[in-house]
Design a protein around this nucleic acid. Structure first.
Length: 276
DNA sequence: ACGGCCTCCTGACGGC
DNA sequence: TGCCGTCAGGAGGCCG
């Protein structure tokens, strides 16, 4: 579910409420997320000051002095700030309890019906194995047309699948891959190695542009994503092709009809008139 | 090495 | 009403 803009929205939403505060304890209701929550996390976090919130790819790092709690939202995860007294709902798997400061909510609550998300521990000075081989952030200077060209060189797989490969660029999931390819005029099922350097340059530009716009709008809510304060993301109103199979292409004057096609076991959407 | 396929899990929705 | 199939924003792991 959450792609880079939703995770970034989450990071920006929670940071002002939790950074600089002291953690009372980690309250676990279920430990069997995608991976078991490591037992040492409870002791590592208790009593520590929360120093910073950082996003890397689709992970959040909640830093304390001895390391960081890594949070991944999977397909259906979300974090919300709730008041001390707010009763837990079904699928609220853990709470980070903060020392109350009188006005701000004292719980950071993780909700994840499908449990594809994760809560892991990364000791200070190390990099967790899941993050060790990731490619650049889309906003890194090294992510450009030349980088994409190198990644695409000789590859037969669909460009949509390449864009979603975290070793190529992080944070781009199914929605934003489809939307970026629409903006760039590239069919999602085109072989990555058969796309010109100039079109890949355009693609890297639109990926950044698209993600920036989505972040500015608080991300995309399709079913259950909520910003940490509880509001949905509004970028859904801006989606051009995702989820719009059989709908009319939004480009003025285009009479194309949006098609759905399964690429790499995921649904992709495109306008056959605009994308080649 | 590459690319395709399966898997984890719950819930929503459409058709009969 | 209920049952069943299909689909869902991620991504590691396995197999040929």
């Amino acid at each position: 579910m959450p792609e880079l803009p939703e995770v970034e929205t989450t990071a920006r939403g929670i940071a002002p409420h939790i950074v600089g505060r002291r953690i009372r304890q980690l309250l676990l209701r279920r430990q069997d997320l995608r991976w078991p929550i490591p037992p040492e996390l409870t002791e590592q976090l208790a009593g520590q000051e929360l120093l910073a919130v950082e996003r890397r790819a689709k992970f959040l790092r909640l830093h304390v002095s001895s390391g960081a709690a890594l949070v991944h939202l999977g397909m259906s995860g979300s974090l919300r700030l709730v008041d001390e007294a707010e009763p837990a709902r079904l699928h609220d798997h853990w709470d980070l309890l903060l020392v109350p400061d009188g006005e701000r909510p004292a719980r950071l609550r993780y909700h994840d019906p499908r449990r594809f998300g994760a809560l892991l521990w990364e000791p200070a000075g190390s990099c967790h194995a899941l993050l060790a081989h990731l490619g650049p952030e889309p906003f890194d200077a090294c992510f450009d047309g030349a980088w994409l060209r190198r990644a695409a060189q000789g590859r037969r797989l669909a460009i949509q699948a390449l864009l979603m490969d975290g070793r190529v660029v992080v944070g781009v999931g199914n929605i934003y891959a489809a939307e970026a390819l629409f903006r760039a005029g590239i069919r999602p099922d085109r072989s990555a190695g058969r796309i010109s350097a100039s079109r890949l340059q355009r693609l890297s530009d639109v990926v950044r542009e698209l993600l920036s716009e989505a972040i500015a709008m608080g991300g995309t809510t399709l079913r259950d994503f909520v910003q940490p304060g509880g509001a949905p993301g509004y970028f859904v109103q801006t989606l051009a092709v995702y989820g719009r199979a059989q709908g009319a292409c939004i480009r003025p004057g285009c009479e194309g009809v949006v098609q759905r096609k399964v690429i790499g076991q995921r649904s992709s959407y495109f306008c056959p008139r605009c994308q080649h």
